Amino acid sequence: MNSNSTDQPRVAIVTGGSRGIGRQVVERLAADGYAIVVNYRDNHAEAETAVAAARAAGGDAIAIPADIADEAAVADLFEAAERRFGGVDVVVHAAGMMALSPLADLDLDQLDRILRVNVRGTFAVDQQAARRVRRGGAIINFSSSLTRFARPGYSAYAASKGAVSAITLVLARELRGRDVTVNAVAPGPTATALFLDGKDEQTVARIAAEPPLERLGTPDDIAELVAFLAGPGRWVNGQVLYANGGAI
């Protein structure tokens, strides 16, 4: 599943592709022969490093900046992909933000920022994906296992990711007849800077021991699932896949 009907490489846009899980997805899809558009917001150097890694893995790649919650910027992102590579086959929407606070203490301005990035951003990216992804393609959003864990301090983040799950399930049904799958990956604790930042060793060790597999997830664990949904997993559609080692 790494070429379209004209025998050209399949094309993937990966939002948040300059770091963390998104960066690993870039490398994994590049290894499958995809041409990759690495979306980032601010860090050009990291994005170019991701591009170099994708090319080293066997795929072509470019880096395009865009605020994912700005619908005009997202439209420009997709248009840049189409100009460079001729179309879009896969959209992996991995960009997001997290902020922790007990609900009673949550700064509602912070809540607005989380909802803007995680919910509005998903709408903006999925709107363009729904209009532009070619037949046989895939849209892959990122939810979170925190929608099930109900871990204190994560109310705003979990609420935003619950919205992503709902958007995904509805969009899959709205694309009936298009031959485009829509799914969400819901990682559990994964060893990225987003998860590790601000946690002491004891907290990390306690969380790592929760799943039956007794470890944190890795970006590669999640990237393998994304690669399956992007390619051979054509009969998986309208699902939220919880990738957390069996923690719940």
Rank of each mutant, 00 (worst) to 15 (best):
R131A: 12
D70Y: 11
F195D: 13
A166Q: 13
I140S: 07
S5K: 15
T49L: 03
V14A: 07
F228S: 08
A47Y: 02
H44I: 00
I21T: 05
V117T: 14
L225E: 07
D107Q: 14
P102T: 06
G20P: 11
S155P: 15
A81R: 01
L225H: 11
I64G: 10
P187R: 05
I207R: 15
L108C: 10
I114K: 00
P212A: 00
A184N: 13
T6R: 15
T181S: 15
P189L: 14
I36Y: 07
G86R: 05
S144R: 08
G58W: 11
F228N: 05
F78S: 09
G22P: 07
I13G: 09
V170W: 04
V88G: 12
G136V: 01
V90H: 05
F149P: 04
D220W: 13
V119A: 01
N43T: 05
V92C: 01
A54F: 08
S18W: 03
I139V: 05
V240A: 14
R55Q: 14
A138V: 03
A57H: 02
R120M: 07
G121K: 09
A163Y: 13
K161I: 00
P65A: 04
N244M: 10
S5H: 15
G22H: 07
D89T: 00
T122C: 10
Q24C: 09
A80W: 03
Y40A: 02
F123L: 08
Y242H: 11
L100S: 02
I207L: 15
V226M: 11
V38F: 00
D179E: 14
L108W: 02
D112Y: 00
A95M: 07
E201H: 03
V240Q: 12
P65E: 08
P9S: 00
E224I: 02
I167V: 12
A129N: 08
T122D: 04
A50Y: 03
G16M: 05
G59V: 01
S155I: 15
R10T: 02
R215N: 03
R41V: 07
A159G: 13
A63T: 00
A223W: 02
R116V: 12
E174Y: 02
G136N: 13
R151Y: 10
S160F: 03
A54D: 06
E71R: 15
G59F: 08
D112H: 12
N237I: 00
Q128N: 05
P65G: 09
V133Q: 03
V117I: 08
T192E: 07
I222R: 11
G59D: 10
V226R: 03
A227L: 06
G16R: 11
A81E: 11
L171E: 08
